[in-house]
Amino acid sequence: MQDNILEIHNLVTSFASDGRKDRAIAVNGVDIAIPKGSTVGLVGESGCGKSVTSLSAMGLLPDNGRVESGEAIFCGRDLLKLPDRELRKIRGNRISMIFQEPMTSLNPVIPVGKQVSEALRLHGGMDKETAKRKSIEILERVGVPEARRRYDNYPHQLSGGLRQRVMIGMAMALKPDLLIADEPTTALDVSIEAQILRLMRTLQRESGMSILMITHNLGVVAEICDEVYVMYAGEVVEHADVYALFRDCAHPYTRGLIASLPRMTPKGQRLYTIRGTVPNLRAMPAGCRFAPRCERACKRCWEEKPLLQDIGNGHLCRCHAPVGTNGNGGEGNG
């Protein structure tokens, strides 16, 4: 217990939309624990609630979002109950975030160096000159060439990869205990992605921070994560360490995700796809939320909601008929 830097318990987050009275539940009872010093992946397709989970914990939900219940324990304090003032002392200081789109996540009218030094001045209490010197050091550290000159550049003058390095520098400025990276490489091309992931790993080794890596890319997960949570339609459906997940994934959804990765297979084979789309947040199936798309779904799956159960060695799975057991459905061809 005490080894976790952040523990999210039973988080429920809802969103209001225009002209409707009922609120859509985007995150429905999520439990996540991030051990100190490790990298935890949070995987799922767009709209499954993975970003909302992290934004809820940080108190950064948009105006129409609201945390309904749950807790997010960081160093013994529940972030969800902290007054905004206290939460602001943690944000950017002990927990930092990196976002997906480095172009829109940096302020277009403020030089990038200033954006890095801002957090230093706010939380580190540095004066302007010290913060500037420190920021240039940080920019060099995250691999921005000619950092002194780049300090005065505006975001549009940098490439996507450099912008993401600046974002990382900004997030790492105060050596946070936890870095939440929300799809940090999705907008970058593959070679840059590898560089950025390597950089994050190096920085993690140096500082011993924990990382929550939010992604839909299983390649990134395999590259960098120690353990993984798989989310589907606002719920965690599987949790395991990264080796167990790729070797013996138990949930049909996870298996579908892994199966749909392109591989070095003989020519002529079609890539696997999961049929159908994510169910509407306001019209969730009564039983298992994945049942309408599942090849193994049986009557029970449609009627009874499965619970997240330990299927051995701390491997959790939310399924009546996990892969590898004698399920009621067909075997599929994953």
Partner: peptide, 12 residues
């Protein structure tokens, strides 16, 4: 905009 969320995530 996203950069407002970034600014807030810094604790401003």
């Amino acid at each position: 905009n996203d950069y407002i969320r970034t600014a807030r995530s810094k604790g401003l």
